[in-house]
């Protein structure tokens, strides 16, 4: 079992507000981990630690270590661009660029100077297939991404995120703006993708955590209350706060 991600004694502050409290968490390679918990408990903040997306937020301060493949990603000599290549991210609202489907997928490669047409074509097909979107768009690759439905746009964003061949995929409520059919497509996709990626998904939809994840981490008021196999969390959680949350008794 390879420990892909590791958080050691992590604390986060926004100015004086203590929003992540002494969290330790290890994530295995090729697994899906769901972050659940009430709004404002720190799920997104914690997720963004893995690709240093919090760095630009005013007043942000972190203590402790975040390791990817055993290496501290907050070390001075590490380049954030290199990190972001390894760690892809998909957001709540599908955010394709106002460009063609094709251009969207290869965006990350283009800005890294890849120009080989064959390679780009191949990447587009591979990623769109992996994102379960190829059959729907293969005849319209030059069409604007904005003409796609919400669910298709989100799968396009997933294709874009995996085009640079990251090993970690972060997803912040990736299906919360989608209809049920698109949601289940995205969920099936996550299940498929875990053979190649280490995936963390923030979700406020408990059933979704149950369906897609191997491990579930329950956050409450900035604390990691419990992280265990999703089966355990959903049938017999250890902490009574976890039970109260997943049974809808508070939150």
């Amino acid at each position: 079992m390879h420990k892909k991600l590791e958080a050691r004694n992590v604390n986060v502050f926004y100015d004086q507000t203590h929003v992540i409290k002494d969290v330790n968490l290890a994530v295995e390679q090729h697994s899906v981990t769901a972050f659940i918990g009430p709004s404002g408990c720190g799920k997104s903040t914690f997720l963004r630690l893995y690709n240093r997306m919090n760095d630009l937020i005013e007043g942000f301060r972190k203590e402790g270590e975040i390791l990817i493949d055993g290496r501290d990603i907050y070390q001075r000599d590490l380049r954030v661009e290199d990190l972001r290549k390894k760690v892809g991210m998909v957001f709540q609202k599908p955010n394709p660029f106002p460009k063609s489907i094709y251009e969207n997928v290869i965006y990350g490669l283009k800005i890294r100077g890849v120009n080989n047409k064959n390679l780009l074509d191949e990447t587009v097909e591979r990623c769109l297939r992996q994102a379960a979107l190829w059959d729907e768009v293969k005849d319209n690759l030059r069409k604007s991404a904005l003409a796609l439905s919400g669910g298709q746009q989100q799968r396009l964003c997933i294709a874009r995120a995996i085009a640079t061949e990251p090993s970690v995929l972060l997803m912040d409520e990736p299906a919360s703006a989608l209809d049920p059919i698109s949601t289940s497509k995205v969920e099936e996709l996550i299940y498929e993708l875990k053979s190649q990626f280490t995936i963390i998904i923030v979700t406020h939809n408990m059933q979704q955590a149950g369906r897609v994840s191997d491990k579930t981490a329950f956050f409450y008021l900035g604390e990691l209350v419990e992280c265990d196999s999703t089966k355990k969390i959903f049938t017999n959680p250890t902490d009574s706060r976890t039970q109260d949350y997943i049974t809808g008794r508070f939150g």
């Binding site: 149950g210 369906r211 959903f234």
Partner: peptide, 9 residues
């Protein structure tokens, strides 16, 4: 069976 009900509703 319990897991299937709990995880997949």
């Amino acid at each position: 069976c319990e897991n299937t009900i709990a995880l997949f509703n």
